[in-house]
């Protein structure tokens, strides 16, 4: 298995959590106050609440439902209903492998961490992530490429478009644009991505 692009680093600032996905698994991607990124199962072991609805205080992520507080490695550190209790080691959120490079957050299964690093994206800066209702091959065809790592030009600018396949014939596009592109150019790339999405979704609807 390879690393899967799951988010852009700029979309998960320190002290925040966001929902993400790895294949059909729901994950929470969160960054501690000191800037450490983590990807965990998006489910509190207590009552199954999505941890991506939770809150980050310092180096810990807490569940919004009962405030159970989790730290490094997914370990539960505090149960507010029992402030005196040291939670047993067994109370743990399953964790995923995560790495950040060139402004992209990549995730993988913990027990199948890829040996090769994620593809190099030197020369490009993260632009934005878009969700669309089309299969990856439909998107690649609309872009005029193949595979999940599309490189070419959009809106008059060199771009990399990373496709993250999602369940139910959906995918995320994580788009990067050439370093140094000015704001007006980036606006054109963003508009071209919207156009690409419309084109792919229309093609998908016709195919269906």
């Amino acid at each position: 298995m390879n690393w899967t692009p799951a988010a852009l680093s700029q979309d998960i600032p320190s002290g925040s959590a966001a929902p993400g996905q790895l294949g059909d698994k729901d994950i929470v991607i969160w960054r501690s106050a000191s800037g450490r990124i983590a990807a965990w199962s998006d489910r509190c072991p207590h009552r199954g609440m999505r941890l991506s609805h939770g809150f980050v205080r310092g180096e810990f992520l807490s569940c919004i439902y009962h405030g159970w507080r989790y730290g490094d490695g997914g370990q539960c550190h505090r149960i507010p209903a029992h402030p005196e209790l040291t939670p047993p080691d067994a109370i743990k959120v399953p964790v995923f492998a995560v790495t950040e490079s060139d402004g992209v957050v990549w995730v993988a299964q913990k027990d199948a961490e890829p040996e090769a690093p994620p593809p190099g994206l030197a020369g490009f800066s993260p632009l934005r992530t878009l969700r669309l209702s089309a299969r990856p091959e439909t998107v690649a065809a609309a872009f005029g490429g193949t595979g999940l790592d599309l490189r070419g030009e959009l809106g008059g600018c060199a771009v990399v478009v990373l496709i993250q396949p999602l369940p139910d014939d959906q995918c995320n596009l994580h788009a990067l644009a050439a370093n140094g592109a000015d704001t007006a150019t980036l606006d054109r790339v963003s508009a071209a991505l919207e156009a690409l999405r419309r084109q792919a979704e229309t093609a998908e609807e016709i195919a269906a």
Partner: peptide, 16 residues
Amino acid sequence: LHELLPEPGPQPDVIR
């Protein structure tokens, strides 16, 4: 935004 408040009180080992 519960994150705007500090985690209250001492942690379990301190309380005990």
